[in-house]
Design a protein around this nucleic acid. Sequence first.
DNA 1: GGAGTGATGACA
DNA 2: GTCATCACTCCA
Length: 174
Amino acid sequence: MSKPLSLRWFRRPVLEVAPELLGRHLVVSRKGGRGSERFVITEVEAYDGPEDLACHASRGRTTRTEVMYQAGGVFYVYLVYGMHWMLNIVTGAEGYPAAVLIRGVEGISGPGKLTRRLGIDHSLNARSATGKGGVWFEESGLVVPENTIEKTPRVGVDYAGEWARRPYRFVLRP
DNA sequence: GGAGTGATGACA
DNA sequence: GTCATCACTCCA
């Protein structure tokens, strides 16, 4: 049994938070359900501020991106291609738009499949990750040595020029 | 390689 | 109001 990672834990630079999420648990407590499910996080991507051309907030503050400007510890959930919800956790200080995309957990690879399997959709958007929204993060007790973390460019952001090549994707090697 | 799918944001 | 775009997945 472990407490949710604190809001303070997320209010740090996204490039610190993202790799540290690897090996920790994503916890989902279904509405009306009994108990909760825990998943080891295996793949994430960092989206870092207004200058990062792959970050939605690089096109300015809009209705959709508003939540990214909040202080870290709230979820940013949006729809792509009309059918897949993307689960992100906002990081950093209030006013600086950054978030980590949860791309995969143990047993589920792919951000769209992940949200479908876990029943996550728009209703989680802007909710805090302290547990009230039914989804949160926990310590797992796993040790993740630095050399088991693979860093690669992010997926599906070829439009982002130089930013597309930055090693902002973090994968836990099997 | 290409289709499905619908919210979002830019523009009028 | 129109239109292009899209942090994906599946099938050929």
